[in-house]
């Protein structure tokens, strides 16, 4: 159960596991940025296919991620609906033409091909990065996270706080369980049987001791870290950091080329949008 928390990192013995964490993080961040900027449907579909193929190689099982994926799909659909509700003509104003599918152009709510096309682009943007993020999270040893963050330029104090969070979340969870049970035994009802407000108040009763015990914990940890010279130098080395190997450079080059291609398309399209309606 405690392993579940890390969305199931496991050494699945693929080339993706052997890439250094920094490489995967850089590739993920780089592709996400270019994908967020561009509205070129051809390009987005390309990256989507690329990330799905990589995902296939990662040997991650669907049941390991089914929950996360359904949450993401749910949110994306909700978002697309809201975009339509608030701006049903945005596609028209972007692409400059209007092909009506439903209703007429006097109505606020009508449906145009342009709007559908625009929302299709949005959907691609929401989802293409999901396989990449999952690959990064599930093929990178949690011990390497902090080292990777530090390597791409984030200060080691901030990076290490990620490691510390991963280290202590299970402890805080077990604290929460203990406190919650102890409070229930005294009569705080927080199960579904109680009314909503009672449950909220019960929740606060648990939170207070939890916060105090966590604060105590933080004080002791920071002392323990200081006693072992954390914060002494401007830099620190990482036991779990991986050196870049040929495959890492290869991956970075491929991704750099992809990003370059995306940039080139801005030029070809004369902007961020690819317009098939012209």
């Amino acid at each position: 159960m405690q392993h579940q928390l890390l969305i199931g990192y496991a050494d699945r013995h693929t080339f993706l596991n052997r890439l250094s964490g920094s490489t995967k993080l850089l590739c993920f961040v780089g592709l996400s940025i270019i994908g967020m900027m561009t509205y070129d449907t051809r390009y987005l579909i390309g990256i989507m296919l690329f990330s799905l193929v990589i995902f296939h190689f990662s040997k991650i099982k669907y049941r390991e991620i089914s929950f996360v994926v359904s949450v993401i799909i749910g949110f994306s659909v909700l978002n697309l609906v809201m975009v339509y509700v608030f701006a049903p003509h945005y596609g028209v104003s972007i692409y400059g033409t209007e092909h009506l599918l439903l209703g007429n152009n006097q109505h606020y709510f009508n449906l145009t091909t342009e709007q559908l096309f625009y929302e299709f682009n949005l959907l691609l943007k929401y989802t293409f990065a999901v396989p990449l993020a999952l690959i990064f999270l599930m093929t990178t040893n949690p011990s390497e996270f902090a080292a990777s963050l530090n390597k791409i330029g984030i200060s080691y104090r901030v990076s290490y706080s990620v490691a510390i969070a991963l280290r202590y979340i299970p402890d805080v969870q077990s604290d929460y369980r203990t406190i919650s049970l102890a409070q229930q035994a005294r009569g705080f009802e927080i199960s579904k049987k109680a009314k909503f407000m009672t449950r909220v108040r019960g929740g606060i009763q648990i939170l207070l001791p939890l916060i105090f015990s966590s604060l105590d914990r933080i004080e002791i940890i920071s002392q323990a870290m200081e006693l072992r010279r954390f914060g002494k130098g401007k830099h620190r080395s990482w036991y779990m950091a991986q050196k870049f190997r040929a495959n890492d450079y290869l991956a970075l080059i491929i991704v750099a080329l992809l990003i370059l291609l995306g940039g080139l398309l801005f030029h070809v399209n004369g902007g961020r949008f690819w317009n098939p309606f012209k």
Partner: peptide, 8 residues
């Protein structure tokens, strides 16, 4: 290795 990491 924690303290050695801090000693770079």
């Amino acid at each position: 290795a924690f303290s050695l990491e801090n000693d770079q």
